[in-house]
Each structure stands twice: as structure tokens, then as C-alpha cells.
Simulated assay, not measured.
Amino acid sequence: MSEKKDVIQQTTEEARVLAVQLISNATYGSLAVLDPATGRPSVTRVAITTDTDNTPLLLASGLATHTPALDANPVCSLLLGEPADKGDPLVHPRITLACSAEKFMRGQEGYQRLRDLFLEKRPKVKLYIDLGDFVIFRLNVESAGLNGGFGKAFHLKTEDIVLPQ
């Protein structure tokens, strides 16, 4: 039997730069949570922006199924990166972030700064950010898997992605 080849490459500066760009340029992503009602994974598309250190921020309604899921279990994953209009979608860069969600509610310390940042970066959320059931989740990155395109796979650590303050 032949030995299985490790396809994960040594993390490079190029991989770090690509990861930071994929996160900072994203306006939406696919959020995976564990549904407390069924115990099964659930995935949804969410609008995001980033905090000043490049940590993803998620604006969520209490009506969305992922909000009670994150309340019950803050462990989640966020997939970012979109394919170009043409070509095989699997050759385009993407990153999966393993995160722990931290909830910020209106009146809580830190909420106003995150709200203002969200509005600054994504002005269209003004339509609903102040509705009573909306909260902000900071998706604290614990690790990541970067697929930089065909044959370019990397495991990344928090310090590879989150920018020093």
C-alpha cells in the first residue's frame, strides 16, 4: 500500500495575504451552525463585514434560525470566497473559518462601536440594523482552511488571519 501524500502545504506569506484579502473583501458568506432543534448542521447565507482586526462580524435577526443556534452553541464555520463568472468554481480561492461566535446586543459594551463600523462599511444595513431583534455576532477565528485554488491547500492559525491591533 502506498503512503498517503499530505496535500496541505507549508503556510506562506502569499497564503496569509490571500486569506486576509478573502476575509476583508467579503460582503457575505455561508455560515454553518448546529441546529439545536434537530442536532444537525445547518448552513445559511449571511451578510458580513469585518472588525478593525479583520475578525468577521455578522448582523443577525432574532427571527433567523442561525441566531438561536449560535445562542445555544457558539461554535460555527464561515465559508468565504466566490468564483468568477467563468470557469470551474473549484479553482477559485476560498477560505473556511472555524469560529466561536460572541454576541453583542444593543446597550451592551462594545455594541455601539460594532454597529457604527457595520454602518460605515455596509451602509445599506441602515434599513434594518436598528430593528429590535437585530444583534451583532463577532466570529472569533480559531483556525482556518484556505484553498487558494487547485493544489494550493493551507491550514492557517488565528495569527495568520487576525491583524494585530
Rank of each mutant, 00 (worst) to 15 (best):
V91D: 02
L97W: 04
S100A: 06
C76I: 05
L79E: 08
A98Q: 15
H92C: 14
D88M: 06
A84D: 15
F104V: 06
C99S: 06
L80N: 07
G107F: 12
C99Q: 07
P83F: 05
P93A: 10
L79R: 11
A84V: 14
P89G: 11
S77R: 09
S77K: 13
E102G: 03
F104Y: 14
E109H: 02
A101W: 15
L97S: 04
L79A: 10
E82V: 12
L97G: 10
E109S: 00
C99A: 11
H92F: 06
G81F: 02
Q112H: 01
H92D: 06
K103P: 04
E102M: 08
C99H: 09
A98I: 10
R94H: 12
M105G: 08
A84E: 13
S100R: 10
Y111S: 01
G110D: 01
E109K: 00
M105A: 08
A101K: 13
L97F: 13
A84T: 13
C99Y: 11
G107I: 12
D85T: 09
M105Y: 01
I95W: 03
P89T: 09
Q112V: 10
L90C: 08
A101I: 03
E109R: 00
H92E: 12
L79S: 07
L90M: 03
C99D: 08
S77N: 11
S77C: 09
R94N: 02
H92K: 07
K103Y: 02
A98S: 11
D85M: 14
L90H: 05
E82R: 07
T96N: 10
S77F: 12
P83E: 14
P93D: 03
D85I: 15
Y111W: 04
H92V: 10
L80D: 15
D85Y: 13
H92W: 07
C99I: 10
H92Y: 05
R106N: 00
A101Y: 13
S77Q: 02
S100D: 15
L97I: 08
G81M: 13
K86G: 10
K103M: 02
L80Y: 12
C99G: 08
A101M: 11
D85W: 08
G110N: 06
F104H: 03
Y111K: 00
R106F: 00
K86C: 01
G110V: 00
K103V: 03
D85F: 05
S77H: 06
D88K: 06
L80K: 10
Q112R: 11
Q108L: 00
L90V: 15
I95S: 14
R94A: 03
D88S: 03
A101N: 09
E102R: 07
P83K: 09
G107A: 12
L80T: 10
R106W: 02
I95K: 15
Q108V: 05
C76M: 11
Q112K: 04
I95R: 08
D85H: 04
R106G: 01
Y111R: 00
L78S: 08
V91W: 05
L79C: 09
P83A: 15
L97P: 06
L78P: 15
C76T: 05
P93Q: 01
L97Y: 02
H92P: 12
A98H: 04
A101D: 03
I95V: 07
A98T: 11
I95F: 02
R94V: 13
